[in-house]
């Protein structure tokens, strides 16, 4: 799954290089022998090959076969695995939940991260304590975060359940589809906010003081000032975070979902990546699972390309 998260490393790497290092032609090293640069590249290429290209190729090839559950043989079935997946109502249902889940998690974690960073940027007293408290959540491993989330939403001791009960909401995480989805989104957002917070805060601090002061003289309305003079300067950071957050919501929420829905009744919300896992490793349908992961890979590829094509044009790099 995480392999697919790195789909299209080319543009991302190119872009990171553009965003961080300015090319200095004067310092460019010229190699005398044509083999030498390849030798330097070899370790990196080996890692990419072993952990990305090879498994991807495996997934693509096995997506065209139906494999015997016990591994005795495989039958070539062409695109049947794909049509089966895309044709199934369950798959489409999970796909639409995944889309909603991704949009909500991305929007809320970016929005909250931005809000907290802007506020933290204005804190003067005890600023480092405050920031450490904000950032420390990021140090929690995803399964642990899922567990903590489960505790918070526990039927008997969970404070969130009690809080919801105050408003007459009888929360049943793991049983009720909507309640589970709510808890999943909340925990996923909570886990991702500190990451966004760190990046946005450092982005904010990279904005020159004098530009802020010039804006202070040019624009009286604080909100308007923020959206017209400050936020555009955060665009490179925001663009990077948008890509990272979408990938996070699509793939890295796996552990949170796993903790929340494992061993629970069947009708629970899951995302596509979790379905890949369930079909492949629980259902032993390697072919179908591979086809699904190839579809996911293509989705991420397209998403990333669209982002780079359309969004990046609007991004101003300092």
């Amino acid at each position: 799954m995480t392999n697919a998260a790195q789909t299209s490393p080319g543009p991302i790497r190119r872009w990171i290089a553009r965003a961080t290092v300015r090319p200095e032609p004067a310092k460019r090293v010229q190699f005398d022998r044509p083999l030498l640069p390849w030798l330097f590249l070899a370790p990196q290429l080996a890692v990419i090959f072993v952990f990305f290209y090879w498994p991807s190729a495996q997934a693509i090839s096995s997506s065209f076969y139906i494999e015997d559950p016990f591994g005795f043989g495989a039958t070539f079935v062409g695109f049947d695995n794909y049509t089966d997946a895309l044709g199934s109502a369950e798959y489409r249902h999970i796909a639409s939940f995944t889309a909603i889940f991704t949009v909500l998690v991305t929007a809320f974690s970016l929005g909250l991260g931005l809000l907290l960073a802007v506020k933290a940027d204005q804190v003067i007293r005890a600023r480092s304590t405050y920031r450490t408290a904000m950032i420390s959540v990021y140090a929690i491993a995803p399964p642990v975060a899922g567990l903590i989330g489960m505790m918070l939403f526990d039927q008997h001791i969970g404070p969130f359940v009690k809080l919801a009960a105050w408003f007459g909401w009888e929360m049943k995480v793991g049983l009720n589809y909507f309640d589970t989805a709510f808890a999943m989104i909340l925990v996923s957002v909570w886990k991702q906010v500190p990451y966004n917070f760190i990046f946005i805060l450092s982005g904010l601090q990279g904005i020159p003081q004098s530009v802020r002061e010039a804006a202070l003289i040019d624009c009286k309305n604080g909100a308007r000032r923020f959206f017209t003079a400050i936020l555009p300067l955060l665009a490179p950071t925001a663009f990077f975070l948008l890509i990272i957050n979408i990938t996070y919501a699509l793939f890295d929420t796996f552990a949170v979902i796993d903790v929340m829905v494992k061993d629970k009744a069947a009708n629970n919300p899951i995302t596509l990546v979790y379905k890949v896992y369930v079909d492949g490793f629980r259902g032993n349908d390697i072919g179908g699972s591979s086809a699904q992961s190839v579809i996911l890979m293509l989705v991420v590829l397209v998403l990333t390309l669209v982002q780079f094509r359309w969004l990046e044009r609007r991004v101003h790099y300092g």
Binding site: S210, V211, A214, I217, D218, C219, K220, P232
Partner: peptide, 20 residues
Amino acid sequence: VDPADRDIAMVFQNYALYPH
């Protein structure tokens, strides 16, 4: 009074232009 309402304009040492 807010800086924006003081009817002044300022020129900064490092120009402070809006880069975008």
